[in-house]
Nucleic acid binder design. Structure first.
Length: 508
RNA sequence: GGGCCCGUAGCUCAGCCCGGUUAGAGCAGGGGGCUUUUAACCCUCGUGUCGCAGGUUCGAAUCCUGCCGGGCCCA
């Protein structure tokens, strides 16, 4: 937006005042946008504010040391007493007060401080000490503008409250509030921890294609686009699975991908059109191996996130939505049929003749095309999933609803498929993977028939994936873990939008 | 898709129920003062699409309808 498009005279006036300050600085020979700290101030390195605090925690009142430091950061508060000015500077590690006295600074340097506004990024060199009230400060010998802010900061006490603006102008939210910074750091900690755990176990990180001609591996509407050079429609991936399995066919026995999936569906507190998933595959493992891996991944991520959100690193009893969730392994193991049986108060099996009636009785709308397995899954989601607080492996999903999992070793009507649920949130889905290409084709065909009957969009399935399976994939355990949902649990956030710095939004 | 709530200055919010001077405050900003402040303080300065459109009325930020944007809950 150019300045003449600014709406409202108040805003125009604020912007004009900052332009005027900028011009005054430059007329006085101080660039409003410095090249480097060294060029501006003659010092190459800033001292992190946390380091200044750590080194000078024991000073009493009115005690100025001989230690010279250089701070660089954003001015977040300014108190001007006339011949004495107090500015609070914020860097990545914390806040520290700068004291500027007309007695210590050259006159032109002191006068130019009038042109420093809240939000400007400055550099300061001076002695570390305390004021008469004991506030740790840097007593400035010289300072320089590093970057002039041409727009004002949000309200200094209440910050940026409008949830829409918090997301659209996340840069301001990050300045005004520590919550988004914690969310950002927690995500980084989770990603780093997952890579460490998997790398230590011999897994190799892989990057599969995001642009695909067939978007498979899940049931979701894809985003579509067009590749001009190939003159062909393309889709953004909805899952990582099918390309990781191709790598297994190719002989990579332990492989994982941490990456973005895209689903062209609704937005709410736990859905965003783009979201981050971990998928990991371990040859010669099965879903029991994946349970152990899930436990390690979740607890290690908790230890990494804990210090960021103010818990002791090893505290695995975390508070989520007012309840205490104990992440200490081993997690509980239940079966989906057992849990649904408990919820309805009678034994539920896949050959239970009254299943549709039972479901309707419990408020589940039953589609004609649904078989018993789908009804059981719906009953589970409606009656059980949200009530599971402590981390629990819900095991042995019906074959009908789990097209990529292998049949259960003890019951061919079920699959070796578990979901890990905690605080009512589904965190992990894992299988003993289906390796039989004939069975896999039959499953895909069944899924398509179901969609046709329901009138849903039918997409062709991935023939090359089936060809790869026909070349032979070793027995393999695989898991998919939602990173955003894991963060929702570990940071006790209210919504995914608090954890995704720039969530999908309507254009401004 | 259904229900409830919100939208007033750059930011944070009053005012709306029960219509009636010229729509207010704090922060930020302009001017002035102040050598120890801690959201500094004191004096002073306001050209706002009261989300948009329509309606009711002598009169609408305020009541009604529709729309747009956002939030929470449910599906």
């Amino acid at each position: 937006m150019s300045e003449d498009e600014a709406i409202g005279s108040r805003e125009t006036e604020l912007l004009a005042a900052r332009r005027t300050s900028m011009e005054k600085l430059e007329r006085a020979g101080m660039p409003a946008f410095a090249l480097t700290l060294e060029r501006a101030l003659g010092v190459a390195e800033q001292t992190p504010i946390a380091a200044v605090r750590a080194a000078h925690g024991e000073l009493g009142l009115d005690d100025v040391t001989g230690t010279i430091v250089t701070l660089a950061g954003r001015v977040v508060l300014k108190r001007d007493i006339g011949k004495l000015k107090f500015l609070v500077v914020r860097d990545r590690s914390g806040d520290l007060q700068m004291v500027a006295s007309s007695a210590d600074l050259p006159e032109d340097q002191f006068t130019l401080l009038d042109e420093v506004d809240l939000g400007d990024i400055i550099g300061v060199t001076g002695r570390v000490g305390t004021t008469r009230k004991g506030e740790l400060s840097v007593f400035a010998d010289r300072w320089a503008m590093l970057t002039k802010a041409l727009r004002p900061l949000p309200e200094k006490w209440h910050g940026l409250q409008d949830p829409d603006l918090q997301q659209r102008r996340r840069y301001l939210h990050l300045i005004a509030d520590e919550a988004p910074r914690r969310a950002f750091l927690a995500r980084s900690a989770v990603l780093k921890t997952m890579r460490r755990v998997l790398d230590d176990r011999g897994f190799v990180e892989f990057e599969g294609p995001m642009l695909q001609t067939v978007a498979g591996g899940a049931n979701a509407r894809p985003f579509t686009t067009h590749h001009h050079a190939l003159d062909t429609p393309m889709k953004l991936r909805i899952s990582l699975e099918l390309y990781l399995k191709r790598m297994l066919v190719g002989g990579v026995e332990r492989v994982y991908e941490l990456g973005r999936n895209f689903r062209n569906e609704g937005i709410d507190r736990d859905h965003n059109p783009e979201f981050t998933m971990l998928e990991a595959y371990q040859a010669y493992g099965d879903y029991h191996s994946m349970m152990e891996l899930s436990e390690v991944l979740l607890t290690e991520c908790a230890r990494a996130v804990n210090p960021i959100v103010g818990r002791d690193a090893d505290d695995l009893r975390i508070s989520v939505q007012g309840r205490t969730i104990d992440l200490t392994p081993p997690f509980a193991r239940i079966t989906i049929l057992g849990s649904v049986s408990d919820a309805v108060g009678e034994s539920v099996t896949l050959d239970h003749p009254g299943l549709p009636t039972l479901a309707t009785h419990h408020g589940v709308h039953v589609e004609r095309a649904w078989g018993p397995g789908k009804i059981v899954q719906e009953l589970f989601e409606k009656l059980v999933e949200g009530t599971i607080e402590q981390p629990t492996f819900v095991c042995d999903f019906p074959r009908e609803v789990s097209p990529l999992a292998r049949p259960h070793r003890d019951d061919p009507g079920l699959t070796e498929h578990f979901d890990l649920v905690a605080a009512g949130i589904e965190l992990v889905t894992a299988f003993s993977e289906l390796t039989d290409p004939i069975e896999q084709r039959a499953k895909f065909e069944l899924q398509q028939q179901m969609k046709e009957v329901l009138g849903d969009e039918v997409h062709p399935f991935d023939e090359d994936f089936l060809r790869a399976l026909e070349h032979g994939m070793p027995p393999v355990g695989g898991l998919g873990m939602g990173i955003d949902r894991t963060l929702l649990l570990l940071t006790d956030a209210a919504s995914l939008r608090d954890l995704i710095m720039f969530p999908s939004q309507r254009p401004e």
